[in-house]
Design a protein around this nucleic acid. Sequence first.
RNA 1: GCGGUCGUGGCGGAACUGGCAGACGCGCAAGACUAAGGAUCUUGUGGGUAACUCCAUGCAGGUUCAAUUCCUGUCGACCGCACCA
Length: 813
Amino acid sequence: MMDMKSVESKWQAKWEKTKLNVFNKKNADKKLYVLEMFSYPSGAKLHVGHWYNYGPTDTYARFKKMQGYEVFQPMGFDAFGLPAENYAIKTGIHPKDSTEKNIETMERQLRNMGAMFDWSAEIKTCEENYYKWTQWLFLQLYKKGLAYRKEALVNWCPSCETVLANEQVVDGKCERCSSVVLRKDMTQWFFKITDYAEELLTDLDTIDWPEKTKLMQKNWIGRSTGCEIHFECETGDTITVFTTRPDTLFGVNYVVLAPEHPLVDKLKAAHPENADAIDAYVRYAAEANDIDRLSTAREKTGVFTGAYAIHPLTGKQVPIYLADYVLYSYGTGAVMAVAAHDERDYAFATKYGLPITQVIQKVGGETILPYCEDGILVNSGEFDGLSGEEARDAIAVHLTKIGKGGKKINYRLRDWSVSRQRYWGAPIPMIHCEKCGVVPVPEKDLPVKLPYDVEFRPTGKSPLASHEGFMNCTCPECGGKAQRDPDTLDTFVCSSWYYLRYADAHNEKQAFSTDVANKMLPVDVYVGGSEHACMHLLYARFITKALRDMGYIDFSEPFKRLVHQGIILGPDGNRMSKSHGNVISPDTYIDEYGSDIFRLYLMFGFSYTEGGPWNDDGIKSIARFIERVERIVRKSQEETNGGRTEKGAAEKELDYVKNHTIKSITRDVEAFSFNTSIARIMEYVNALQKYDAENAEKNVAFYKTCVEDLIRMLAPFAPHFSEELWEICGNKDSVFLEEYPLVNEQALIKDETEYAIQVNSKIKAKILIAQGLSDEEIQAVVCANPEIAAQIEGKSIKKCIVVKNRLVNLIVG
RNA sequence: GCGGUCGUGGCGGAACUGGCAGACGCGCAAGACUAAGGAUCUUGUGGGUAACUCCAUGCAGGUUCAAUUCCUGUCGACCGCACCA
């Protein structure tokens, strides 16, 4: 039997030499951009997840190549980021050194995988020739007004000593280290992703993505239609609230501000008698960690400010409260409280003895408060008698007329905070000048290089801040002394545009050429984990749209089709993790069986999008299967041409199975259903073996073409092995230059098909029926069958249902 | 709490727009070849029954000639969001 290891390295060397996997620009009109999410070199080695993402997707790519597409399948490294820096803090090994070393190992392993990656387009986001353009991207967004700085409450991880994006906070904890996240005021750079909220939402309809992922993005964007309403405050300020229920406006009993609301200080000054209580409450709200604060079960608490606001329609005074059930980050950070028709407001009003005014009446039934459904308006002046929907519209229109508010669409999505007080990232290309303020680094001065000799141990400040050589610079506007921005960019910025750079990876003058990008993109099929649904995948869409609006590209969505692979769990059914002690290393399997067999097993043993617990029982059976194929091929080569030349029943049967197999694979691979594809190939192998065993005198020429077709079919699934077999069959060129076998529909037409025959929906017989008969003729054939005739004897046929090529159901009585 | 996905043999998993449930493989059993078999090949394999047949896709209903597939309820698992005004 073949030594898989040497066969694999032999073919990897040949592919490299013949540049088999390099994208040929001449065939750009047939391009197919197949992309896997690039690797993050945090660990030194590839894990099962990498293999599961890249192996099967490579099979898809190779399959499409054999179908005649010019496939572009690049690979690279998302190399900046926290883990390398955390590792550096622990061990003292510089992030650049450890990252480069990890990349070297992973790259070698990826090459050994034997995927058709086009390494000529490789990118590493931590290299100057890449992050120069990440900085360029930042400058373009800045010019366009999409990058701005604001003082903001940010999520601060005390352990990583850095700011986290909302998306990186999971259950009030740091996504990476699980420390409880605190709130802290800081000046940060933000990208105005909210400008694109509406388009990000509506364009979901134009892309072929899993519905689940689209729904997650939809919920993340969180569009809600409602009304903005202004309440005059006694300090002369205006409190603006957002509500989806303006129909309940007459039922407002009080107004609530989030404890972080900027107006709180003013109200406190106006009511010094309540200052202590307000301070205490603000402190109480700030001290509560996010987990408690976000708990639905948390008891409603709050404090009266002493101040009042004026109801915009009734002119009545309503008290202003602070309560932490109002979130500063959503809407306007203030709500109008309608105790009778909102559960939270009801609970709060009951607790603090506030009045409750019913303004909605249930249609047909008793109204039990709090009543949160739609109904007919009462106690609402001129709006009495309107339905909820009519009232929402009428009140909004009225508010607009009197200048006290109006219709408003609100989004849950917040702007993307991109500043990181971290070393291992792309420096933000901005300069702070005492005279000129914030000044962008001129594009000709890019990249702003990340210095090597930096103290990266956390101090609470950005590591770069204490590097004088980096910080001190001259202002590009006035030429005076100035300071660089000490922060680096969120690594999601690096990964939000890498798919564009791949297409033009060696361009030294631009991030990418517009022409090339428009030809090569969008990515036709993008494959990666679903954990990126609301982060990377949303950011990349935003950046694409922003670049389009700046005229750099002419398409609106980066990834036409998206596929998520499932997750391979540990043998115990838990996620693989060191703490569970259930991590499976692919390396031992690769050593024993080689890349092809490992990949085949990953494809055969799991439903690709489901994943599941690891179990290596099946891997031996794949090895056996491969050996069986090899035996068949070698044996077929020993046959001398001759034997019979005509195609008899046995040949027709084999031809049928072959074409059925081709047809199934063609459909299944397109759907990333690799397990069924391989099952069909196994059936075909069984059929070949059966033909070989049962026909002492074979049609050798025919049999040999069937065996060669098997190699072509198998090639995308077991690339090295198939190349070797192809060579054994006497072929000089790569099997990947062959066309994938095409279905001969003629071979699939059988003279007769087996029908299941039901009588009163119960299966009674299976009979062969000739092709091309009408329903009536089929019924006649069925009734003539002795078995069926016995069943229906003495009964009349009430109905006969014929499903072509499948079954006949006779309803008798 | 809200939204979503999924529950199929001992196991991994199939079943295209409702149409023969359990493809393919593992495991198991019997046999062949063997000094030997953990190699290879053949056969069998959802459950009950002596058999005709009957029961089976988490559970309970419904629609239909026909339901793993559609609908309602319910239990369980997983994922996402979570005081969203």
